[in-house]
Simulated scan of single mutants.
Amino acid sequence: MRTRIPATALIAIGLSVCAQAARLDLGQAPPPVRVARWIKAPVKPTGPPRIRIVGFFSSWSAPSNQALPVLAQVARKHAKLVTIEMISVYEKSSGAADTSYYKTVAAFVKQRAALMPYAVGVDDPKGAMANAWLEASGERGVPTSFIIGRNGKIVWIGHTMMLDTVMDEIVSGKFDFATYRKERKEQMEAEEKEYRLLKRFNELQQSGRYREAVAELDRIAKAQPEYGRRMVLVRFNLLLKSDEKAAYTYGRELLNGELKDQSGMLWLMARMLLDETPGLVRPDYKLALDLSQRSADLTKHNDANILTALAYAHFKLGHVDKAIEIQERAIPIGDANPQIPER
Rank of each mutant, 00 (worst) to 15 (best):
L163D: 14
D168H: 02
V171G: 07
G173R: 01
F175W: 02
F175T: 07
F177M: 05
T179A: 15
Y180H: 15
K182C: 07
K185M: 10
K185H: 13
Q187I: 06
Q187C: 05
M188G: 05
E192I: 11
E194C: 07
R196I: 07
F201L: 15
N202R: 03
L204M: 06
L204K: 02
Q206T: 09
Q206S: 14
S207E: 03
Y210W: 12
E212D: 15
A215K: 11
L217C: 07
D218G: 10
I220H: 08
K222Y: 06
E226I: 01
E226D: 15
R235G: 06
F236W: 01
S242F: 02
E244I: 00
A246W: 00
A246L: 00
T249L: 00
G251I: 01
G251Q: 01
L255H: 02
N256F: 03
G257C: 01
G257E: 04
Q262E: 02
G264I: 06
M265D: 11
W267I: 01
M269L: 04
R271W: 15
L273G: 10
L274Y: 11
L274Q: 11
D275H: 09
P278F: 11
G279K: 02
G279A: 04
Y285G: 10
A288M: 07
S292I: 05
L298S: 12
T299P: 03
D303W: 04
